[in-house]
Simulated scan of single mutants.
Amino acid sequence: MFKPRPNTILRRSLAQAIRPAVKVPNASHQGSGPSNIDKNLPHERRTKAWEKAGEDKDSWFRRKYAHVHAKAGNPNRQKGRAKQNVEEASVQHDQHKSKFRNRSVTGSLRPNPLMEYVHGTNSVISVLQADKRDYYSRILYHASVTDEIRSLAKKRGAQLEMTDKHRLNILTNYAVHNNVVLETKPLQLPEISQVGSCDPEGSTFAYDELFFDEASERRTSFIQKENKKFPLGLYLDEVSDPHNMGAIIRSAYFLGVDFMIMSRRNCAPLSPTVSKTSSGATELLPIFTVDKPLDFFSKSQKEGWTFVSAGVSKQNKFAKNKKIEAQDLHGMLKELPVILVVGNEGEGVRTNLQMRSDFLVEIPQGRGAAGTRSVDSLNVSVATAILLNSILN
């Protein structure tokens, strides 16, 4: 058995007898591991709502939110509904995009401002038949196109291009296009300074065409029949509505007018709307422009032409001896060439042109002035057709 040495026993006895002079604070709380300071800091606890009310948690929530519908108060259900709305919107977006997948990149571009887009089957055919324009770019159509248009397009060098109806609506500003649109250059009208001598035997008359202020004499033919030995022209003054313009051109071509003259400064341009309203007659009827109407009247009258202004004549000394009745127009083309002058339905022919005209004619009211207070005039296209028919038949 092991026995400790005497020196070891002595050291142990001395260590127990000697006490430390200084006492270490909190010595009893010191342990082997790190101390936690949080337990020495003050803590504040928030009083819950149900504790303030003196109720348990379940009873307080039942009393507080019993009126809220279970479905409406379910946050999971709201999230599911929002997710469903996002999915539905995504499906609708994909369906909308699928409608435009076959379109070309250029299909969404705006129309070319340097080109005209003639629309309507008759208008397109008339443009290609007359061949008065500089060139023809392409024919855009939807579904199908007639064999006549295909043949004329090949003859004029115009490309055929199938497209959708929305594209045609954009090009024509949502007009009635009959699923066919011709992209072409605008119609350039020759400017004239006067109409000249007539040759009844050869059925021709002369006119002076202006080119950079230089006049060149031209001759063209006119229609002759039993009661018409001389040409008939139509002069438009301040007709600004394109639909009226188109209707006038259509009536004039149908009834047998030989040519038409427009005041260059104050008439509606010959737009695709005019061409569509005229059913293509804009391309078939010879049309000229005049820059100085009074000079045109004076020079043409010296060549033997008679000007008849239509509309309500002004009550003045210049109109006193110029008034004639509509029936007086019958047979006039057997003796001399005539130009009928019409103006807008608001003001009619301007006073200076009435004063320069040879005759003034007015369509009488069938009900009298007292019975037509609200309808005191005819549409200019209707009035023009009536007077043209009186002259030609």
Score class of each variant (00 low, 15 high):
2 F>A: 14
3 K>D: 13
4 P>Q: 05
4 P>Y: 01
4 P>A: 04
9 I>L: 11
11 R>L: 01
15 A>H: 02
20 P>I: 00
20 P>G: 05
21 A>R: 13
21 A>Q: 13
29 H>S: 12
29 H>T: 09
31 G>F: 11
31 G>D: 09
33 G>I: 12
38 D>E: 15
41 L>W: 06
43 H>R: 15
46 R>A: 11
49 A>H: 14
56 D>P: 03
56 D>M: 02
60 W>E: 10
65 Y>F: 08
69 H>L: 02
71 K>V: 10
74 N>F: 05
79 K>I: 01
79 K>D: 02
81 R>M: 11
87 E>R: 10
88 E>Q: 10
92 Q>V: 07
97 K>V: 11
99 K>L: 14
99 K>M: 11
105 V>A: 11
109 L>K: 11
110 R>L: 14
112 N>M: 06
118 V>M: 14
121 T>G: 07
123 S>N: 12
126 S>H: 08
128 L>C: 06
131 D>E: 09
140 L>K: 05
145 V>W: 02
150 R>E: 05
151 S>K: 13
151 S>T: 13
151 S>H: 13
154 K>V: 06
157 G>D: 00
166 H>W: 12
166 H>P: 10
170 I>D: 15
170 I>L: 14
173 N>P: 11
174 Y>S: 09
176 V>P: 05
178 N>I: 06
180 V>Y: 03
183 E>A: 03
191 E>T: 14
194 Q>M: 12
195 V>D: 02
197 S>Q: 08
200 P>F: 10
203 S>H: 06
204 T>N: 07
205 F>P: 01
206 A>P: 10
206 A>N: 13
207 Y>G: 09
210 L>F: 08
211 F>V: 10
212 F>I: 09
212 F>G: 07
214 E>W: 08
215 A>P: 08
219 R>D: 10
222 F>L: 04
223 I>V: 12
231 P>F: 05
231 P>L: 04
241 D>V: 08
242 P>A: 04
243 H>V: 05
255 L>Y: 12
256 G>D: 06
259 F>R: 01
259 F>T: 05
259 F>A: 05
269 P>L: 00
278 S>N: 02
282 T>W: 00
287 I>T: 07
293 P>I: 03
296 F>R: 03
303 E>N: 12
305 W>H: 07
309 S>D: 01
310 A>L: 11
313 S>N: 04
316 N>C: 00
322 K>Y: 08
322 K>S: 00
322 K>W: 07
323 K>I: 07
325 E>A: 15
325 E>R: 14
328 D>E: 11
330 H>Q: 15
332 M>S: 13
333 L>M: 15
336 L>P: 10
339 I>T: 12
342 V>R: 13
345 E>I: 00
348 G>E: 02
350 R>Y: 04
354 Q>A: 03
356 R>Y: 11
356 R>Q: 10
356 R>M: 09
377 S>W: 02
377 S>V: 01
382 V>S: 15
389 N>I: 14
392 L>H: 04
393 N>E: 14
